[in-house]
Each structure stands twice: as C-alpha cells, then as structure tokens.
C-alpha cells in the first residue's frame, strides 16, 4: 500500500499508512465493475483526512464514473462532505487539515504540489449546502467565474456564457427580465440554481454538490433534482446527501459512508435493493443514522 501524504499543498513523507488503525480489521472494499457504467476518469485511492490529530476519513478508494451522478450517503459526521471537499481541495482552506492518499483526474494527481489549485477548481466546480450567491446582480454572479478565468473575449461572449449557463441551470426563463437585480433577492431554490449556473459558467468537467437541497423546500428540491438529471448528460456529478430517497432518485452510483469509512459502493439500484453489508442495510432501512 503506497501512501502519499500532503498537507495543504506541501508534501511530507510518511513511511506507512496513517497511525489510526481501526479496531476491527478493515474489510477491503470490493470495487464493483459495472459493465453498464461509464468509464471513470476520477479515481481515489486510500484517501484519508486528518483534522489535527483526529482522523476523519479512513482509506477511501472509489472510482467516479464519467457523465453520471454518484451519490455519497451516510449519517451526519460520516465523512462524506469531508471526502467531497478533498476532490477540489477545498479542505486546503481549513487550518490543520491534512489529506493523504491519491486522487487522480485522468491519471493526474490532484495533490501534486506542481498542480495549480485555481485551475483544478475551474475543472471541478462546487455547489454548497446553503445557497451562497455573491451580493451582486444575477448577471455578475454568473459572470464572476468567466471573468476571473478570462473565458470571455468581449462583452457579447460574456453575455452568451451567462445566458447559456443560466439556461443549462434552468433559471434563464425566470430571471431574464431582471438579470441586473441582486442575486440575493431570488428564492432559495432559485438561488441554488444560480449557484449551479455560476459553477457551470466556468466550464467544469466535474460538479461537486454538497447537500444542495438541504436548505430548500420539497418543490424547489424536485426542480433541482430534475436539473441534476439533465446535467448528467454533460457533466460528472457527485452529490452528497443525507436523503436516501434523493440518492435513489438522482444517482446511478451510490457510496455509503459510516464513521469515516466507505462501507459499500455500487450501482444505486443494487445498493438500495440488495446491499451486501449489514450496516448499509441498517441505514437504508432506517435502523441507524
């Protein structure tokens, strides 16, 4: 088992796998090879995360299929959000957080110190739990990413990017007459779709969604779920959710996390109808979590 350890971009070597050895022997997670699934470009190997001395995530290895929706489920504090934030290195901004293991996109290690984290986050976008539009106009919110990355040559290009992003996020029809009003004036569901449009505008390959519907009402949630299903045509999507129904509705692949460990992963249907692990079954039947 090779373990490359990095902390906030600066590598330091560790001889063996991290100290915290689980009390019971870890069962090697079986990697499912689903012939129907798309090939994976995003892979993780033995990813562990430490907050100071406390280990939050234990040796997670999973492949994320291209252009499909993968859902991470599990009870609160199980490490699913932590793992998600490793994928675009948002954990870099947390002091004392250390990530070890390999996360590769097209074979390129995301924690390679030579890699530009700015570029990485343009390729792997993120949508947060609470809608967090900037205190700017709707147009400026979407134009933010293309502006900082210099994606638009002129004003017309920029307007086109904004319009197509809003269309892809299914928001354009609702806001086309008030593009220059504050994004914070929209309803919660609209704000979240605005945040999705904002992420799309940068042209990412992967979109990470951290419980994107937890602050929304059921109707807004349904709209977002429908949107996620449409987006899968063009983007690889990873969604963290504590709602099993949501995972069942939107995802093709599901991974179940518990106490910082990846317990089981596989095609969504299989996980929900025929889980291999007892803990998975307990969780989806509502006995734990």
């Amino acid at each position: 088992m090779t373990t490359d350890t990095f902390s906030a971009g600066a590598p330091f070597a560790m001889s063996a796998s991290p100290t915290a050895v689980p009390a019971e022997p870890v069962k090697e997670t079986v990697r499912t090879i689903d012939p129907a699934a798309n090939p994976a470009r995003l892979r993780t190997d033995d990813v562990s995360v430490f907050y100071g001395d406390k280990q939050a995530l234990f040796d997670v290895s999973i492949d994320i299929p291209e252009k499909s929706v993968s859902a991470f489920i599990g009870p609160s504090g199980c490490g699913k959000s932590t793992f998600l934030r490793c994928i675009n290195r948002m954990n870099d901004t947390i002091e004392g957080c250390r990530v070890s293991g390999d996360i590769t996109l097209d074979g390129e290690n995301l924690y390679d110190p030579r890699l530009d984290v700015v570029e990485l986050r343009a390729r792997i976008g993120m949508v947060f739990q609470k809608p967090n539009p900037f205190p700017k106009s709707i147009f400026e919110n979407v134009a933010y990413g293309p502006r900082i990355h210099g994606l638009a040559g002129n004003k017309a290009d920029l307007e086109e990017i904004v319009e197509s992003s809003l269309k892809k996020a299914g928001l354009f029809e609702e806001v086309k007459d008030r593009l220059h009003q504050p994004g914070t004036g929209l309803s919660g569901g609209q704000q979240q779709r605005l945040c999705i449009a904002r992420a799309i505008a940068v042209g990412p390959e992967v979109i990470l969604m951290d419980e994107p519907c937890s602050a929304l009402d059921p109707i807004a949630t349904a709209v977002i779920e429908e949107l996620i299903d449409e987006l899968r045509e063009n983007y690889t999507i990873i969604i963290v959710t504590h709602s099993m129904q949501q995972a069942a509705r939107v995802s093709q692949k599901t991974a179940f996390f518990h106490l910082g460990k990846l317990i089981e992963e596989g095609p969504t249907e299989e996980i929900f109808t025929n889980p291999r692990e007892k803990r998975t079954q307990d969780y989806i039947t509502g006995r734990i979590g």
């Binding site: 986050r121 947060f128 967090n132 945040c195 992420a199």
Partner: peptide, 27 residues
C-alpha cells in the same frame, strides 16, 4: 463576511486575492 462567500469564490477557482477584491471588499 460569511465564510460561505469566500468558499463560493474559492470554489470557482478564484485566488485569495481575487476573492478579497471582488467578493469580500464589496460585501
């Protein structure tokens, strides 16, 4: 200024400097 604002900007690939100039200072 809420952490969510900084996260949102950093998550889009903005540098810390861009985040400060374009999001934090206006807010």
């Amino acid at each position: 200024v809420p952490q969510a604002m900084r996260d949102g900007s950093l998550g889009l690939g903005a540098t810390q400097n861009e985040t400060i100039r374009r999001v934090l200072l206006p807010a």
